[in-house]
């Protein structure tokens, strides 16, 4: 069923305004689109991070759904417990509603400190959807690198200095990791392409097992971009194939969007202050390397998808 924005607009938002996330933050855009995608009741667990902190500063909460935060590394385990309680109580006839269970974690809480819990929950195959809102660094503590930080990016722990040009080493491919682990549905999406994200969320919550979606959620503060550019930057990530939109369903890889004209990676990097140093002459080679990596990954993805055509 195609996404109809007018119909969506008749639904009640389940994340209110009045939260304290920065102006132009990508995370609440992701959360709103995700919650609008789902018709049934949602119970959510949230890892420690910007989204958690800024939406629930006591005595205010922006969440209209049952919501829990307990710690940083354990959103996947917490949602496992909630889902287990649900399965048990349902089996005993003590609950009848159909409920969707969603965990939200940033890249720090997902790629890094929560990776083990995520892997465990996926392997146990709880009927859950884990959403990583990926802003490519520890933004809540002030822009420190995570394993989601891309090659060459400036962060406060990978500053661009005289001998080191920002982050050394590539971004961890978490989607492939979770997909290869055998999760029933794994996808990559972006806040810029809301129809794609909403369709993926709908598909994920209809699955009978553990699902994972990695959503690109730009951070103006950490990416050194204008607050108004959040959606545009996310779109450039998609159009340059830095952030391809794809899904892996029961091990079958599928690309959901092929840019009409794949833009050079510099189009994505240039508007972001965190990559400004890459445009200095001494870093020309690194810039080339980044383009090569994007191209190679895109090519590999296409090959994987071709296997299942």
């Amino acid at each position: 069923m195609p996404v109809n924005i007018k119909e969506l607009s008749r639904k009640e938002d389940r994340l209110t305004g009045g939260h304290r996330l920065c102006a132009g933050c990508g995370a609440p855009i992701a959360v709103r689109q995700i919650l609008l995608a789902i018709d049934k009741p949602v119970v959510a667990a949230n890892a420690t991070g910007c989204l958690e902190v800024a939406t629930t500063i006591y005595p205010y909460t922006a969440w209209k759904i049952p919501w829990i935060h307990s710690a940083f590394e354990n959103a996947a385990s917490t949602i496992s417990g909630l889902e287990a309680a649900y399965q048990s109580l349902k089996r005993q006839g003590k609950i009848t509603e159909d409920i969707a269970f969603i965990a939200f974690g940033g890249d720090g809480g997902t790629y890094d400190i929560g990776f083990q819990a995520l892997s465990g929950a996926m392997e146990r195959n709880h009927k859950i959807l884990y959403i990583c809102y990926d802003n490519e660094a520890y933004m809540n503590t002030g822009i420190q690198r995570s394993s989601a930080t891309p090659l060459g990016a400036w962060t406060t722990t990978t500053p661009a200095g005289k001998v080191r040009p920002g982050k050394l080493g590539k971004k961890k491919d978490i989607v492939a990791s979770v997909a290869e682990q055998g999760a029933v549905y794994v996808a990559q999406a972006s806040i810029s392409n809301f129809r794609d994200l909403i369709e993926k969320v709908r598909k994920a919550v209809s699955m009978d097992g553990a699902t994972f979606i990695n959503v690109l959620s730009p951070c103006p503060r950490g990416w050194r971009t204008d607050t108004s550019e959040t959606v545009n930057i996310a779109r450039l990530a998609v159009e340059t194939c830095f952030w391809p939109l794809y899904e892996v369903e029961d091990g079958r890889w599928r690309i959901n969007y092929i840019p009409r004209q794949k833009l050079p990676i510099t189009e994505y990097l240039k508007p972001q202050g965190r990559f400004a140093h890459l445009f200095r002459p001494e870093n020309a080679q690194l810039l080339e390397e980044i383009q090569k990596e994007v191209d190679a990954k895109w090519e590999l993805l296409q090959k994987k998808a071709q296997l299942f055509q």
């Binding site: 389940r14 209110t16 305004g17 009045g18 939260h19 102006a23 005595p59 205010y60 922006a62």
Partner: peptide, 17 residues
């Protein structure tokens, strides 16, 4: 706990603008 779901609505962030 916060028992009034969605009460952040009462907190006005318009002054940030």
């Amino acid at each position: 706990v916060i028992l009034e779901a969605g009460n952040a609505q009462e907190y006005e962030t318009g002054s940030w603008r």
